[in-house]
Design a protein around this nucleic acid. Sequence first.
DNA 1: GATGTCCAAATGTCCGTATATTCGGTTCGA
DNA 2: TCGAACCGAATATACGGACATTTGGACATC
Lengths: 240, 240
Amino acid sequence: MPLWAQLESALRARLDAGEFDDRFPTDGDLVAEYQVSRHTVREAIRHLNSTGILRRERGRGTVVNRAFDQPLGALYSLFESIEASGAVQRSRVIALREERDAFVAGQLELDRDAPLVYLERVRYADDEPLALDRAWLPMAVAAPLLDSDFEHTALYEQLDARCGLRPNSGWERIAPVVPGGRERELLQMRVGEAAFFLERLSSADGHPIERRTTTIRGDRYRFVSTFEAGVAPALVASAT
Amino acid sequence: MPLWAQLESALRARLDAGEFDDRFPTDGDLVAEYQVSRHTVREAIRHLNSTGILRRERGRGTVVNRAFDQPLGALYSLFESIEASGAVQRSRVIALREERDAFVAGQLELDRDAPLVYLERVRYADDEPLALDRAWLPMAVAAPLLDSDFEHTALYEQLDARCGLRPNSGWERIAPVVPGGRERELLQMRVGEAAFFLERLSSADGHPIERRTTTIRGDRYRFVSTFEAGVAPALVASAT
DNA sequence: GATGTCCAAATGTCCGTATATTCGGTTCGA
DNA sequence: TCGAACCGAATATACGGACATTTGGACATC
């Protein structure tokens, strides 16, 4: 294991323990403490930096990014874009309970009858329904969430605060659907109207911790991607 | 401007000119050529690397990622993923003619009554309809395409060969729809089934040259995005 | 012909040092 | 009291050199 990688995991451990909440050591401090060159320190911090845990500011120092360990991907960008548009976001909790589901358990790499925390919400932007959100998490790690108030706080916020988990990788899949029955009603959509169906499996440190499906009204939101030679295209949600 | 940034843009320019198609210089070569330290070279390459243009392999060297130079975006990745899956692709030309359309002309930054080349195709994968593809291009630059055989060649191929144009930037927008009437029939979809509606405007050197809409069957294809902290999420099409 | 060994090339890792730039606070003068 | 100038701290940029590790090919051996 390279020196910088050892240093990275050492710092990560201390970060997780909350050691540097007020102030992160400077390059020089770490050189002195770990007896390595500044170059090595910077290589370790560069990695911590790229994962979004740290933010370096020239002339000020290195600060810990507690709040902005951002849930990633198109779903996150959707809610972010609504936030940016100035619309007021609100959630209504439809269900928050224990559940068992063989398929979901499989995706979360659990036994098929393992207990799960199930959270179902309708999300509103400016009092208009925007999305129906269903999330399943392993009861083994997410049990504390059963007491949470998800009308006023975000899932990932609670997941971090109560369970100490921060998703940092995963995948999403987007399909077109025509919602029916209860789903269509909750979203106040017209019969035969199309919507996005977004599936997501997010993991923390390689272990899946959340299976989520989100049905998003298609009349108000789009996924946009700009592309340019030499730059990887990025998928971003936008309001129409 | 930092030295490494200058080096980065210099290398980028040479890459765009296609200079390193066969082999990218080694660290040592660049040190010798630009008279900077290896540290600076690596800083520049690190950035080129993070945008996905280059890939370094220990013991082998630095190689160019030409894939990113192709017509980009989700639409391209769709047909590429079908290709990769081994399915046989085929196109049936429904229409290839001159047309006028005020809205499209506006998007292409032309006069509202400017003549356009209009191409409409149904695309098949293994003899099953996959997508309905409509493209508009300015007659002023794309007139030679009216003689092309689009059953057996790709649009961008002809555009390059006959008009000398290669799209290198643009945007795409994805929405869910329920195709009706003729569209549904051509795609052999059931009534009330959902599909993707993909709009695209692509440009060459900043000038829009192609407006395209593609209706993609939703039952067979999905858009997938994997995400990881510190890495830009990439949108990729995949067959179900 | 298959296998093993060695070597050169290329990138990865690591150290030490020096200067530049930026930020925040302090000091000083009008 | 306010603004400008200054200063220390911290990161950014840049150079130099050295050794480690991996890859792929050349070569020899069985």
